[in-house]
């Protein structure tokens, strides 16, 4: 049931109520006029020339700008003197190092610090091999395990052959022990 008192707009018919139409007409009437005097005052103020800067103020501005620029320049020079001198990256160790392996990866290393980066990556691979007891770290206990096996004549794991000469001996033990005390490897762990 429709209540025309509370909802006077007849949307179904597509026409607005008379009261609304008259209000809108009154709102958009074009009777907004700027008075002549106000218009003239605005134009006059725009045409006025700016006041000249006094001679003493101009001189002060030039001095301040100059001193600031000099101070900035000196600060830059002093700061640059305190910076470390950039050094060129060292050349690769050998041609074989660059020739073998993934060339793209190696050239990326070279851009940083090729010899040390290559040595570090090799050390990380080797450290897994030397972790004989599999406890996640290379220490003297790995070397001790292999040494006891070598001396007692127990069966020797071919994985303990660090030199790659086909046999496990005290030379392999020394390699494991040297890896355990290596300071450069320790810095990687």
């Amino acid at each position: 049931m429709r209540d025309d008192t509370n909802n006077p707009t007849d949307f179904d018919s597509g026409e607005a109520p008379e009261a609304l139409i008259s209000d809108l007409k009154r709102l958009y009437q074009d009777d907004l006029r700027i008075p002549e005097a106000v218009d003239r005052a605005i134009l006059d103020s725009l045409h006025e020339a700016p006041a000249p800067i006094p001679w003493r103020s101009a001189k002060r501005i030039w001095w301040t700008t100059g001193i600031t620029a000099a101070a900035a320049g000196l600060t830059l020079i002093v700061w640059l003197q305190g910076q470390p001198t950039p050094q060129a990256p060292p050349p690769p160790n050998t041609a074989d190092q660059l020739a073998s392996g993934d060339m793209r990866q190696r050239s990326a290393f070279q851009a940083l610090d090729a010899p040390s980066m290559l040595a570090e990556s090799d050390a990380m691979v080797a450290s897994v091999k030397e972790d004989v007891d599999g406890d996640g770290q290379v220490n003297i206990l790995d070397a001790f395990l292999v040494a006891r096996a070598v001396e007692s004549g127990e069966s020797l794991d071919p994985a303990w052959d660090m030199t790659g000469d086909g046999s496990v001996s005290m030379t392999d033990v020394d390699l494991i022990a040297n890896a355990a005390v290596s300071l450069s490897r320790r810095s990687l762990q």
């Binding site: 220490n139 003297i140 005390v181 290596s182």
Partner: peptide, 20 residues
């Protein structure tokens, strides 16, 4: 004992040894 020769002239060393 075992030690890294790089430790010489430095202030830090890892020392290790075993005996059978």
């Amino acid at each position: 004992p075992y030690y890294d020769p790089e430790a010489l002239q430095g202030g830090r060393v890892i020392v290790a040894a075993f005996s059978t």
